Amino acid sequence: MKTLLLKKEEVSRLICMREVIGTVEDAYKAFNSNQVVQPGYIGIHLPSPRGEIDFKLGYYKPNEIISMKASSGGFINNLTAHGVPSGMGTILLFDARSCALICVMDGSLITGLRTGASGSISVKALARKKAKTITSIGTGNQARMQIRAINEIMKIEEIHAWDSNPDTLSKYKTDIESEFGIPVVMANSKKEAVAQADILITTTRGKGSLVEADWVKPGTHIVAIGTDQLGKQELDPEIFRNAKIVNDSIEQCIEKGETWHPLNKNIITKYDIHGEIGEILLGKKPGRENDNEITIFDSTGMAIQDNTTSARIYQNAIERKVGTFFEFL
């Protein structure tokens, strides 16, 4: 048999953000429809100044594909020391009927795309219908990806942004205004930025509370992206006390996500978690129920998102005759 190799540039030509939003919606619905086998993911933290590498494995019964992704991040010296990016990803696809390796593809773009798509899906389900102003705490690559995805499903009138690095913040303003024509206000403080938010996005690799509870106005929808391992944190746990809490995977979020912090401090119990995003998409549980409630989407990222997205890319590659086949066996 032959295995298909897809390089980063080829992957970028094989899928668009709107299509990714669809594949991630499929993933969330499948997860809550008993169509997924998804073991807990594992991570290895390497000595400083290196970062971490995570491994996520998933099986999607309808497409009979098993995916395995290795994704690294936080290797701040990579470019100068090794000539490679600070974060990288690789995805392997196996035919579940035989477990033969059918595709090897770059996974760095997929991680960014599907994570951005997850935020936009939560906005559709949980943000106020009249939401128009976004605040971004953190202005790196994933902050940009969130805007790309949310811009597909709503009209963003203004973005307020804060970053600990003024140069990064200034570049974010230039890039976003150039790409989308959306005005970006560079906030003087986190508090100032959060106070403006209809939708609050946090995409840092923070290890402490960045957003305080009394800064968040009623009706805000929070997209919490940055916490996917123990030790990371972006939100004051008190924000969870009176909020509607939605996880991508409750099992993951109570162990490694932002939801762990209020649980650990006994601010909430597991029974205070409203549910998983897939349950809302399937109509099993309600989304936003009034304009005053604070909603939180805690996303740790799931293997099934990688599976449905990379499987679509693989299908597109076969149809368009993109990529290089090689004999693996």
Rank of each mutant, 00 (worst) to 15 (best):
P237F: 11
I296D: 02
E258F: 09
P286R: 15
D248S: 09
L235D: 02
Y271R: 13
K285E: 12
C253W: 03
G287D: 08
W260N: 04
I254W: 02
Q305F: 02
D298N: 10
I280Y: 07
K284S: 09
A243E: 07
T227I: 13
N264V: 14
I313W: 04
A303N: 05
E276R: 08
D272T: 00
V246T: 13
Y314N: 15
Y314Q: 11
Q233V: 13
I313T: 02
Q229V: 07
G275M: 13
Q305P: 05
G275D: 09
I296T: 08
E258K: 03
Q229W: 05
N264G: 07
V246C: 13
N292S: 15
D306W: 06
D291G: 08
I296F: 05
G275N: 12
K244C: 05
F297W: 13
N290Y: 03
E289C: 11
R312L: 08
G283A: 06
L230K: 14
Q315A: 15
Q252R: 10
I296L: 03
A243L: 13
K244F: 04
N264K: 14
N264H: 14
W260Q: 14
M302Y: 05
T295N: 08
L235K: 02
D298P: 07
R312N: 03
L263A: 03
I250C: 01
Q233A: 12
E276L: 02
K285Y: 07
W260M: 14
C253F: 01
K270C: 06
Y314G: 14
E258L: 12
E276H: 09
N264D: 15
E255K: 15
I245Y: 02
I273N: 00
R241Q: 08
I267N: 00
K232I: 08
K256W: 12
P286D: 11
P262L: 07
L281K: 12
A311N: 01
I268R: 10
D248V: 05
G283W: 09
E276V: 06
D272S: 12
H274Y: 14
S299H: 05
E234Q: 06
G301S: 04
E238T: 13
D306G: 10
E234T: 11
K244M: 13
E234P: 09
D248L: 10
P262A: 03
T269H: 14
G287V: 00
I268T: 06
R312I: 00
I277Y: 01
D248Q: 10
